[in-house]
Design a protein around this nucleic acid. Structure first.
Length: 578
RNA sequence: CGGGGCGUGGCGCAGUCCGGCUAGCGCGCCUGCUUUGGGAGCAGGAGGUCGCAGGUUCGAAUCCUGUCGCCCCGACCA
């Protein structure tokens, strides 16, 4: 490809409203252009990157035995009603609108495709003999995100690889677990080949769905999630899932006696701790939840937060929701804000950090009163003790190593769905006994645009992008200086043609521009290898080869440069064996 | 949805508080000449319903009302 025949609108300045590195660089490098909030055009250079990512994903999915199909973005809303997700998705589900019985009013744009693929399974998969099957597609998704942000990291329209597997058994040959593992391994291969420094972490599988879920994360401050990990990599989890080491009991057994104090109108941790001049960590936060119609009380330290996912798992209830004020009054006999465990008649789950407290402060179950000198075990029963809180700075992992918190972006997610969608949509097959059974399902997603942005977040410097070889828009850029010198241009053109024939993605910067312009653009665009051909070098009998990520500039004779480059490209490309 | 900010040629901005000549500047773009190893110089030139609608006024980018859009923080996130 010749630069002058391509389309590369680079800019010296980034728009003032772009803040994160990948967003700024993608615009400056002419990879994308915003159309509306949360939707971008991928300009030719940016689209090359996306296509390369797509190719890696497709190869690995095929290798893992998944079969590609393509589903529409337009779905009948009826299917979403069947699975209850019109409600669950809320505004995230994009609806076409329309009047009355107009077809538009019955059509939504798919944010994901469980419903559509489950209908396929219902229609075509009739026998256990046809299972397992793993379908995938690379397709545009629509989500009515409340707030798109950070360039292409969070958008309303994006490219996703989504796969859905169908099984008659969970374990053993052909089971969900087997395919789940295959997908997990395929994802590792995909992110490795894309050159991304990723981490696979256990994720919370949510109140509904299966028993396992993993997220693939890339560390970047532009991300929205948190990775909780030890410095030596021995433990990593997402914030929702992160487990903490039990805190040891430092009490000396000489505890204060229980005392009731008047705290008029003070119902928050901050207010009470300020009033009583005690640290929030000395307070016992008493949160009343509702689970299956019953009250469920969670106790955590005043400076901690309840992790509702952990709580519902520990309590073995489907889902916990904060109790309404009426239930709180009924359980505590006091206004909201004065709940405490002493004398409380309800099921109480005690966070481990609370179980080792002494002389704590808590609500008195009496409006406008708190208790001091509260000691677990003495003043209230400590029956069910567990880790039910969100990990915080200073916590340690179960293996004793300090936990670190890093911002990250999710680029992939594998999920055991179970029978949620097959049951809801009555999608069944006949088992060996001729009995109808709902499919056991798994689903597996990758955000392609996010891979692109995450790669830039991970690899850039003050001058621009530093693409991994495998997803670079071009692997090699030839900067032909002195384009009016016949020898320069003939050498550059010959090298370009030879590299192209040898299967190297090469772009020849044949613009009649000053060297500085070419060098700066080459660095901004982030091509892994730059070859500089000028009359000065040719007079010495050399051309120059420079890697974008650093290293020595090498002088190589024009006759040897083709092979040298071919080797270097392969050497730098982690997407294929060297 | 709550809080904050911003809409002026393709991009970055000034002008708005305090209304007043043909709305400026830099980058980019076009033409010519010179220049060519780290974002060239000179000369000439094209390009703007000042987001949109209504109002006030002799006169509106500027004041008032409404509205739309975009960005940031928060809430939300299958």
């Amino acid at each position: 490809m010749r630069w002058t025949e391509f389309f590369i609108p680079t800019a010296k300045e980034a728009p003032a409203d772009a803040f994160v590195a990948s967003h700024r660089l993608m615009i400056r490098a002419g990879l994308i252009r915003q159309v509306v909030a949360g939707a971008y055009t991928y300009l030719p250079m940016g689209y090359r990157v996306l296509r390369k990512i797509e190719a890696i994903v497709r190869e690995e999915m095929n290798r893992a035995g998944a079969i590609e199909l393509h589903m529409p973005a337009m779905h009948p809303i009826e299917w979403w009603e069947q699975t209850g997700r019109v409600e669950a998705m809320g505004d995230v589900l994009v609806r076409l609108g329309g009047r009355g019985d107009d077809w538009r009013s019955r059509t939504v744009l798919g944010p994901t495709h469980e419903e559509v693929i489950t209908e396929i399974a219902r229609a075509y998969l009739n026998s256990y003999k046809q299972l397992p099957v793993n379908f995938y597609q690379i397709q545009t998704k629509f989500r009515g995100e409340a707030r798109p942000k950070s360039g292409v990291l969070r958008t309303r329209e994006f490219l996703m690889k989504d796969a859905y597997s169908f099984h008659s058994v969970k374990e053993g040959p052909g089971g969900l677990d087997e395919t789940y593992q295959k997908m997990y391994d395929a994802y590792c291969a995909i992110f490795s080949r894309a050159g991304l420094p990723y981490v696979a972490v256990e994720a919370d599988s949510g109140p509904i769905g299966g028993d396992a879920s993993h997220e693939f994360m890339v560390r970047t401050d532009a991300g929205e999630d948190y990775l909780v990990e030890t410095d030596d990599g021995s433990y990593a989890a997402n914030l929702e899932r992160a487990e903490v080491l039990a805190i040891s009991n430092e009490g000396d057994g000489r505890n204060e006696s229980l005392k009731e104090v008047h705290t008029p109108g003070l119902s928050t941790i901050d207010d009470v701790s300020a009033f009583l001049k005690c640290k929030p960590a000395k307070m016992i936060k008493t949160i009343i939840y509702e689970a299956n119609g019953e009250a469920l009380v969670a106790l955590v330290r005043g400076d901690h937060q309840v992790n509702e996912a952990k709580l519902s798992r520990v309590a073995k209830v489907g889902r916990v929701t904060p109790a309404d004020p009426a239930m709180i009054r009924k359980v505590t006999g006091a206004d909201v804000g004065f709940a405490g465990p002493v004398g409380l008649k309800a099921r109480i789950i005690v966070d481990q950090a609370v179980s080792v407290m002494h002389d704590g402060v808590t609500g008195a179950n009496k409006t406008d009163y708190h208790l001091t000198g509260v000691n677990p075990g003495r003043d209230f029963a400590v029956g069910e003790v567990a880790d039910i809180r969100i990990a915080v700075e200073g916590d340690r992992a179960r293996n004793g190593r300090p936990l670190q918190f890093r911002k990250c972006i999710e680029v992939g997610h594998v999920f055991k769905l179970g029978t949620k969608y097959s049951v809801a949509m009555e999608a069944t097959y006949l088992d060996a006994n001729g009995k109808a059974q709902p499919f056991i399902m798994g689903c597996y997603g990758i955000g392609l645009n996010r891979i692109m942005a995450a790669a830039i977040e991970a690899f850039h410097d003050g001058k621009g992008i530093q693409w991994p070889m495998s997803i670079a828009p071009f692997q090699v850029v030839i900067c032909a200086l002195d384009v009016r010198e016949a020898e320069v241009m003939s050498t550059a053109s010959r090298l370009h043609d030879e590299l192209s024939s040898a299967g190297v993605d090469v772009i020849l910067d044949d613009r009649d521009a000053r060297p500085g312009v070419k060098f700066n653009d080459a660095e901004l665009l982030g091509f892994p290898i730059r070859v500089t051909i000028g009359k000065r070098g040719l007079a010495e009998g050399i051309v120059e080869v420079q890697e974008r990520r650093g290293g020595e500039m090498r002088k190589i004779s024009p006759s040897e440069v083709k092979n040298a480059l071919r080797n270097l490209v392969h050497h730098l490309d982690n997407s294929e064996p060297i």
